[in-house]
Structure formats: C-alpha cells, structure tokens
Design a protein around this nucleic acid. Sequence first.
DNA 1: CAGTAATCGAGACGGTACGTCATGTCTTTGT
DNA 2: ACAAAGACATGACGTACCGTCTCGATTACTG
Lengths: 200, 200, 200, 200
Amino acid sequence: MAQEKRPSTTRRSERSRTAILTAARELVSEVGYAKLTIEAIAARAGVGKQTIYRWWPSKGAVVFDSILSLSEGADDGEIALPDTGDLEADLKTVLRATVAEFADAEFEAPIRALHTEIIGDPELAAAYREKMEAPMREAKKRRLRSAQDAGQLSADADLDLVLDFLYSPLTQRWLTRSGPLDEAFADALVDATLRAFRGS
Amino acid sequence: MAQEKRPSTTRRSERSRTAILTAARELVSEVGYAKLTIEAIAARAGVGKQTIYRWWPSKGAVVFDSILSLSEGADDGEIALPDTGDLEADLKTVLRATVAEFADAEFEAPIRALHTEIIGDPELAAAYREKMEAPMREAKKRRLRSAQDAGQLSADADLDLVLDFLYSPLTQRWLTRSGPLDEAFADALVDATLRAFRGS
Amino acid sequence: MAQEKRPSTTRRSERSRTAILTAARELVSEVGYAKLTIEAIAARAGVGKQTIYRWWPSKGAVVFDSILSLSEGADDGEIALPDTGDLEADLKTVLRATVAEFADAEFEAPIRALHTEIIGDPELAAAYREKMEAPMREAKKRRLRSAQDAGQLSADADLDLVLDFLYSPLTQRWLTRSGPLDEAFADALVDATLRAFRGS
Amino acid sequence: MAQEKRPSTTRRSERSRTAILTAARELVSEVGYAKLTIEAIAARAGVGKQTIYRWWPSKGAVVFDSILSLSEGADDGEIALPDTGDLEADLKTVLRATVAEFADAEFEAPIRALHTEIIGDPELAAAYREKMEAPMREAKKRRLRSAQDAGQLSADADLDLVLDFLYSPLTQRWLTRSGPLDEAFADALVDATLRAFRGS
DNA sequence: CAGTAATCGAGACGGTACGTCATGTCTTTGT
DNA sequence: ACAAAGACATGACGTACCGTCTCGATTACTG
C-alpha cells in the first residue's frame, strides 16, 4: 500500500478501508475517473470523507490502491510467464492476453484512470512503477533471459529495451486510441521485436 | 481550429482569441494542466468567461488550440525531414531533436497537458491526431519511403509499425518518466528498429 | 440594510435576497437560532451558498436583516406612541403590548436569536441599536417629552434612564426566563418608574 | 456542581476535572464562547474528549462549572452585603463594584459566554439562577429587609422588583454595550430606585 | 494483595456544516 | 451588437468539530 502513510499505531478500520477501495473501483467504472469525486466514494462506502483524507493523500492514490488491492495476496509468490520453449509463441500468447485485457472495459477503465493521473503526478508514477509495473517487468525479463540461454535471443540484448519495443506501441495505441488494437498487431510487434533482437 | 464551432457570422474578436490562447499557454506552464481553470484564463486574458465558452467546448480544446496556434502558418507548406541519404543518421538526428523537445519544460508542459486530456477524451484525441500528429506522421513516412526506394528499408515494411517502434517507447518514457530519456536511448531505438525492418 | 456591504454596482437579485430573508425567518422559528445553518437557508431559499456569503458577513447578519425586512417601509414615517394625555395609562398599554409580543413564539424566536448573537458581536449590536432600537427609543422619548410638558414627568428627568427603568427589567426577564412576564409586572414597572420620575 | 451527573461511585479524576475547568476558563477568555470547542478544551487540558462528555452534558455546562469553580468554598458561608445603616451609600458601593467587575475582561468574558447560552437553554438558565444568582439575590434582599426595618424603604415594597430596578439596567447595558457603564450610571440607578421605593 | 471493573488519554469513526472555489449560464452595463 | 464584468445555482473541495466508539494503560476499590 505504498500510497498510504500507515502509522505504527494502526487503529484503522479494515472494514472502512475495504469499502472505500471497492467503492472507488466501482465508481471509476461507472462514471469515469474525471467525474469521480471523493464525496461520491465516501457516500458509496458509507464512510466519512475524513476517513479517506486521513489515509490517502489524493484521489489518484485511492484509485491506485483500489487497483492494487485486486491483486493482493497474489503478488507474494512470483509471477511466471508461460515458457514452452518457443519464445515467439509464448510472447504472442502474452501480448494477445494484454490486448484482451485492454478490450475489457471493467479492467481497462481504472487503469486508464490511473495513467491519466500518473502523467501529472511523478510521485504516483513512481509508486505505480514500483508496486505494479516492476513485478510484471521482472517476470517478463525472466522469460527473456530463459530465451537468451536457449539462444533464441541475442545474449547482449538490452532486455528493458526489448520490453519497451514489445509493450510501448501496445500501451500507446490503447491510451490514445490511435489505431486498431488486435491480435494481428500483437503478433506483428512480436515478429518485429524478435527480428531486431534475435540471436545471431 | 477543429475544436471551435465558428459560426458563419464571424464577428469574433481576434484580439480576444489571441489573448486567451496566450494566457492558456502561459498558465499551463505556470500551474500545470490539472490546476488550470477557465476563470484564470479569462482573468489573465482580460476577457469575459463567456467569450471562452462561446468559442471553445472544453478546457482541453482551449489548450489544444493554444498549442496549435504556436505552429500556425508553418503547417501550410509541407514539413520535410532531413534526407541526407543516410537513414540511420537522419533518424537519429530527428529522434534526438524529439528528446531535446521533451527536455524543454516550456514545450513539454502544454503537450503533456494535452496528453492527459486525450486519454479520457476520444474526440479530442481524434482532433489531435488529425491536426497535429498526422502531418508529422506523413512527413516521417515520406522519409521512410525514400529509404525503401534506396533499399535501406524492407520494401514490404509496415511504415506505421516502424514509426510506432521508433516513437512509442520514447513517448511512453516521457509521459511516465519511467527511465532516462537521452540520446543514447534515441540511438538505441533507431538501431533496433533498423535491425527489425532492414531490407534483406 | 446596515449589515450588507452593498456595492455601488448592484447587480443583485432581489428575488434571491427576499427568498433568503424569508427562509431565514422561517428556519429560526422552526429549529431555533443555534441549529440554524447557512446551508439550510440556502437550500430552503433555492439559492447557492455563495449568494449568501457574497452579501452577508455572518449568520447573525442574515437573521438581523430578516427581522429588519419585516418592518420595511413602515420605518419611513415616524412611529408614534399613543398619547391620550394620561401617561400612566399610555405606558401600561405599550408595555402590555410588549409583554404580549414576547409571548408570541413567532415574533419572539428571531429576536431572541438576534440577542444571542448581539451579546458576542459588538458590530451587530451597534447595527441593532442604530436600525431597530433607535427609532423606537426616539418615539418613546417623544411621548415622555410630551408628558414632561404636561407636568406628568419631572422636567429634568433623564429620559434614557426612564426608558431603562421601564424596559430593562422586562427584557431581562424575557431573555433569562427568570420570572413571570405578565401584565401585572408591566403595570408594576410603570407605577414604580412614575414614582421615581414623577414631577414634583 | 448542578450540571454534573455524579455517580455514587466517584472514581472521578480530580486532576482531570480541574484541568478541564481551567482550560475552559482560559479558552473562553482567549477565543470567546462562540469559538470555544470541546476538542480544544480536551487538548488544552490534556484529557480525552470522552472524559468531558462523560461528566458534562453540554459546552454550556462546562463553562458554567468553570465559572462556579472560581467561587468554590466561599459559598458555604452566607454572603453579606455591607450594612452601614446608610442604604443609599451601601447600594452605591455594591453597584459600583458590579460595574468594576463588568469592566474586567478576565471576569467578564466567561459570564458573558454563560449569558449567551442561557438565552437559548432554559435548563442552563435554571441552573444559573439556582446556583449563582439565588445566593446573591438572597443576600441583597437581606440588606433591603434591614433597610425596611430601618424605615428607609417602604415596608410593602416588592423586593424582587427593587432588585430588578437596580440590576436589570446595569446588566442590559453590559450585555448589549448600549451605553456607558460607569459609576455615575450606578449612582443614578440607586437614586431613582430609592425615589420609587422610599418609605413614605 | 490480587483481581477486576470503571476511568483515563488517545484518537479513529460516520456525520454535518463550514467557507471557498470553479463550473457553465444568464444578466447588466458600457461602448 | 457585441464584449467585459460578474451574479447566479450548482456541487465538490478539504477542514473543523460533533458525539460515539474502540483501544490499551492506569488506578483504586473489593473480595
């Protein structure tokens, strides 16, 4: 819960915390991030506004935690990407899955909201990278390293760069709705990326 | 001015229009997009609020026009990227220039503001693509086509995809501040992209 | 309207002003001054809170004006007390009327509210004296002067002191509910006061 | 301590009680009654809010007790007004003392606060009369009775009315700041009152 | 002298109202 | 006829207190 300043003397109500996070998630989906208000979250959660202000510094932080709380518990263990030995196939599977996620309004709305806020709030951006992006990025790198060991990827490839090539165009299209976001696109990204970083 | 609903009877005060656009640009730089208000723009411009509401549908549209007005007149003629015959060198020149732009707070702030709004406003996003991105994209494609003719780029390369590879990682890093944005990064993007789409 | 800071450029909505004053009067009677809130007044009047804050500096000022507005128009002409030639009878008539007013909850509540605020707000107290008490006090003094001319009251009696004797015990009993407030009391006040200030 | 509902099993912390009363007195003088808050009293007294709510029913009750506690111990014995045999002189002495009290901000502020609350709270008003006013009023009546015995005051004078004449104008002026509150005024009140109730 | 129960400081809680700010519309005034 | 000025109803902001409610930690009576 990087965004919260939890004091040591935690007399905090777990019931309220959960209700707030749930309300935030629901409301983002229903009215969108721009029209989301602290008052509406408080009302929906059956909570005083002060209880939100006491524990979160901003609307963005609440939404951040509301998303984070979805994957709670799961992130204790390490995330693992499929590893069938066939890098191309595995990457296409993963990117197609990402494409599917971006097509699901339920998942998409809160994350889009988060990205809106991230652009203007460096602190929130840092928290996002640390708590949400980093674990996934590490998992992906593990898969790529395995590919390097198998000679499917150049041994000296900059893995961060590889991931940028795979995911940035996807994310960009999703955020700006600048083009079709389908499996063909995902596949094309994998193909081109592998051409660029294939082992000699 | 795609965002404005200019009536046929244009009795519009050019003085006010300019003052509003200038005030908007200044204020975005000074206080950021999130804290930008119509009232502040009107006050700074010495203009009634109604004069803004009469001609622009939203805060985003004003900012959009305020950016657009910077490059006014220039967009009549065609933009042309350098073409020395050396694709790699030319692309690195161009991407390094983009990196430099993103480092200049004066230029960066309003465009960052615009991106914030674009994420949540599909209409504004379309206007952005049509009025601001498309001309640049076309110019870039012309340069790439020239490279295809010269055999420096695969003849069947999807040029939109090539541009995505070149620019998406750059834009993504800039927006999310997720890593250093320097010339080395620009060069690496060019190198990898060319590896992926080099003519056989 | 001593409490309002009416600017010269009065673009003020008379409809709103009246609605606010009426709502204030009603609410004081209904819930009492202590539980009266600006928000409730605004809601009842169908008015934005800002419209109240724009024109009145405090809750007390609104209530003050709401009372004042009752007697509006009437205070242009001079108020006159009955003058039958019989001072004792006339004073008893007037004091009995005051007693009756204090017994009427509709009239009593707002004035009691005003007194609560007056104790703690010297500025409001001054406005009260100037706008509401002074005209009545003058009218009473005129009657007393007529009595002096008729030799029913000592020529050198301090008329302010006479009025204090007549009204202070009445007001005090009313405010603190420290004793019965009836016609007998009113009569006793007149009798004793006349004994003290009767012409030799 | 009429306002407290002291249980038989008094486990109550005398230290806390005193700290609360002292804090209340100080704060009324510092910020005035209207801006006095339970939270501020608790904070200043180094006491939990509940400790106040446990023992007092209202803010007014705390202030009431805070004033009452000043004169603690003294009220066991009977209060006696000076009795030199000269009623006029004695009354002037006493009323001048009252005038002096009202001029002392330290004494005046809490009592003014109390009066504010008394106007709107009949229960508190009753407690005030019983615990604070009654003993003084009795003492004053004893002095007046002594004057009746000495023939300085009409034998059938209503002593409560006499006291109203002496004190109401004084209290009224003090509360509403409607005029100068000086020794001349005190003397004038005594003179007029004695004229009204002098023995034939 | 231990057990136990009420009281204590502390402060989180669901609320209400505060006074301010900005929205987008409407009205007045000056030019 | 416009535009500046700005009042208006609306509604969210973030803060201050309300009175209630846990929390341990004293504390002082009782068994």
